[in-house]
Every structure is written in structure tokens, then in C-alpha cells.
């Protein structure tokens, strides 16, 4: 019996169109980090919670809402490599650490560049460790939209343990592309570990596929890493990279 096609995910395309329009207006061929987060939200893929604070009290309040530990990052157009100048601090466990971190980041950044304009400090949920995966899709010159899945980190870097499919997917394709990677047993749980949230992975694959099929403006999209937790505990998209199609290509 023929496997049914994957249903189109409920995606807020109007929102995606809006951020793409902004990027196009600024003559960018990619989305910025916070635009990527907006896209994830529009797709219904959970990312780390975050909020920008403009004073110490606000930073503490945001951290209390998000829950510890948190990460704090400077928001400034004048500072490109945030980590290098001490503009990013990790593992902040309580409100005292958050308050200290706020001051330390401002101090570090000013020391690096005296006249840097600092718009605020972003307080971000520090994602709990889990199994890292990567889900990407792009437009292949021969086959059109294709999608890739693999385990992240060393598995994708060294082992190149990934699977591909042409879009659109049937339900069975999504299942098979998860199962056919060599490290699939790791997702089932080995050495006493619990089974990972495979349904969450499939949902992510289907959604990324839907985006590429429905948004002609997007040429490449890659969620890397995506953290997968135990079964029913969900997934969390840590970073997303989105490239836009060449405008003339779209007209062709």
C-alpha cells in the first residue's frame, strides 16, 4: 500500500514572508540570528527562550521567568565576535550571578571598544544537554528540493552519517530517513539510556521540508544543532541558518 504524503505542517507563512521581506529590503541573502528564531517560532519548533534586558533589574526578572541556568549575550552592532571579547557568559545559576554577569559584560565590551553602542543584554535559556541532531534542506541543481538528517557533532563532522531524500516526503520516507543512519540505535537508547523523542525528530524533518517546499525565497535552511530529549520530552532548536534564493533564480 502506498504511504500517504506528509501533511503540510501548520506554519505561519505570513510571518516568514515578513522577515524575508525585511532581509531583502536590507539586501541580505541570509537571515539574522533573531530572525531565525522568529522563523522557528512561526514553524512551531521550540527554541531556547530568550529576552533582551536593558538594565540589571530587568535581566534578573527575565532570568527568573526563564529559569536557571541562563546564558547572557551582549546585543550590539559594534561587536562582531561576542565571545572573544567576553560578551557572552554561560552557566549563570542564580540572580546574583546574573546581576554580576550584566555588569561584567558591559565592562568587557566597553574595555574592548570604548564607544560601542550596547542595545542591551540578551538573557537566554541555557539548553539542557541531550542528543544533538542536524536537519537541513536545500535546493539541489538536479533534483530540486532535498532534505538531510543526521546526528550532530562528531557524527556529522567525522562520520558523515546522514540520510537524504527528495521532497516532498511520504510518511514512510520520514521514518526511513531517521532509521537508515548508522547511529540510529543511539536514538533508540543504548546502555540504559531511554529512547529519544523520535516523533519530535520526524516532526522537525517534516516541518523543515514544508518550509523549503512552500517558501521559494529560501534556498537553504539548516537547524544545527537541534537537541533531542527523551521520548515525549521534545526537541529544542538551538541554532538555525537560513539562506535566501538568488532573486533572479526565483523568477526563472
Amino acid at each position: 500500500m502506498e504511504s500517504p504524503p506528509v501533511k503540510n505542517a501548520a506554519i505561519d507563512y505570513a510571518e516568514i514572508t515578513r522577515i524575508i521581506r525585511t532581509a531583502r529590503a536590507e539586501q541580505r541573502s541570509f537571515l539574522l540570528a533573531h530572525e531565525g528564531q522568529i522563523l522557528l517560532k512561526a514553524v512551531g519548533l521550540p527554541g531556547p527562550r530568550s529576552s533582551v534586558a536593558r538594565c540589571i533589574d530587568e535581566a534578573v526578572a527575565r532570568a527568573e521567568e526563564i529559569g536557571y541556568p541562563v546564558v547572557m549575550k551582549v546585543v550590539s552592532r559594534d561587536i562582531l565576535h561576542k565571545s572573544d571579547v567576553g560578551g557572552v557568559l554561560l552557566n549563570l545559576e542564580n540572580k546574583h550571578e546574573v546581576a554580576d554577569a550584566y555588569q561584567a559584560i558591559i565592562h568587557n565590551c566597553k574595555a574592548h571598544k570604548r564607544d560601542a553602542v550596547i542595545e542591551g543584554i540578551e538573557v537566554v535559556e541555557q539548553v539542557k544537554p541531550g542528543t544533538e541532531i542536524i536537519v537541513g534542506a536545500k535546493r539541489d541543481r538536479s533534483f530540486g528540493p532535498v532534505i538531510m538528517f543526521g546526528l550532530g557533532g562528531i557524527y556529522v563532522e567525522v562520520m558523515k552519517d546522514v540520510s537524504f531524500r527528495a521532497l516532498p516526503l511520504r510518511e514512510i520516507d520520514t521514518s526511513l530517513m531517521v532509521k537508515e543512519i548508522r547511529s540510529y540505535p543511539l536514538l533508540l537508547g543504548v546502555r540504559g539510556e531511554r529512547r529519544k523523542d523520535i516523533e519530535g525528530i520526524k516532526d522537525c524533518i517534516n516541518k523543515v521540508g514544508s518550509i523549503l517546499l512552500n517558501c521559494e525565497d529560501i534556498s537553504d535552511i539548516e537547524i544545527n544543532p537541534m537537541i533531542v530529549y527523551d521520548q515525549d520530552q521534545g526537541v529544542k532548536a538551538v541554532d538555525v541558518r537560513v539562506l535566501l534564493s538568488e532573486p533572479e533564480r526565483k523568477q526563472a
Partner: peptide, 17 residues
């Protein structure tokens, strides 16, 4: 610029498809 691009050599995609 992405893993999807660098891993998706034409041959791998051809095979998978």
C-alpha cells in the same frame, strides 16, 4: 555555507534519491 551543502555531494543525493 552549511553542512547540508557540503555533505550533499551530488553523488550522495543521487544515491539517496
Amino acid at each position: 555555507a552549511s553542512h547540508t551543502g557540503s555533505l550533499a555531494g551530488s553523488d550522495e543525493i543521487f544515491d539517496a534519491i
